[in-house]
Computed example of a mutant assay.
Amino acid sequence: MEPIRFDTKIAVLLRDDLLAWQSLNVSAFLVSGIAAALPDLVGEPYEDADGTSYLAMFRQPVLVFSGGKEVLAAAHSRAVARGLPMSVFTSDLFSTGNDRDNRSAVRAVRRDDLDLVGLALHGPKNAVDKVLKGSRMYRS
């Protein structure tokens, strides 16, 4: 069997000063946005040998990167310029407790002034790689 290759990439970019719990929480929220907007990226449900069913997950890997505040701002600008589907998480969202307040917190800030702590995007591999320039693979 030949290895499966993907023409696209799903990537999460996290600010490098987050606490471990924040990185995990932000990653989970961000990839939920990708799954919701791009349901074709989700595969079939899983089932174990005993017939227990499990939820479907992405059909391809999700790569996680990190970088400083400037790296996130630059990546955000490049993703917007390329029109890539993207979810964002700002520092304000750590103090909200629901989707309505999250959306209001983001809506209250101009695009270039967002205090980004994470973003997730999907697109052609080369475009995503260009957006992520200056970041590095995430290490806990």
Rank of each mutant, 00 (worst) to 15 (best):
Q60T: 01
A74W: 00
D17C: 09
Q60K: 01
P61Y: 03
V71R: 00
F58M: 04
S95A: 12
A49L: 14
R100E: 14
G33I: 03
V106L: 06
S77T: 14
L30A: 04
V128Q: 02
M1N: 13
R78D: 12
R139G: 13
D92Y: 11
N25R: 12
V131N: 01
L93S: 11
V106M: 07
A75M: 05
T8V: 11
D40H: 10
L14R: 00
D48Q: 10
A35Y: 01
G33F: 02
I34Q: 01
L13R: 00
L55E: 12
F94M: 06
S135E: 03
L30S: 01
Q60W: 00
M57W: 09
L55P: 09
D115C: 06
L132D: 02
L18E: 05
K130D: 14
V117E: 02
L38S: 03
V62R: 04
L72R: 00
R110V: 10
M86W: 00
R111S: 13
L132M: 06
Q60V: 02
K130A: 15
A36K: 11
R59Q: 09
P61V: 04
V64T: 12
D16P: 08
S77P: 09
D50H: 15
L24F: 13
R103P: 08
L19T: 06
E70A: 14
A73L: 13
L72F: 01
D17Q: 06
R82H: 07
L72A: 05
R107A: 15
A37F: 06
V31I: 13
E70L: 09
N126G: 12
K130S: 14
L18D: 03
W21F: 09
M137Q: 10
F94Q: 05
I10W: 02
A74M: 04
L93C: 14
I4C: 12
R15T: 02
A37V: 05
K133V: 13
G68D: 04
N126S: 15
A120R: 01
D17R: 11
P45K: 07
P124S: 14
R136D: 04
D48I: 08
P124L: 15
E47C: 14
S95M: 10
G68C: 05
L132E: 01
V109H: 08
L121I: 05
T8Y: 09
G118F: 03
A36Q: 11
K133F: 11
Q60I: 01
K69I: 06
P85V: 02
V88K: 03
T52H: 14
H76E: 07
S66P: 07
G33K: 02
G123M: 02
L14C: 02
V80Y: 07
G43A: 10
G33Y: 00
D115E: 12
P45T: 10
H76C: 09
M137S: 10
R136A: 08
R103E: 13
F94T: 05
E70R: 06
H76R: 06
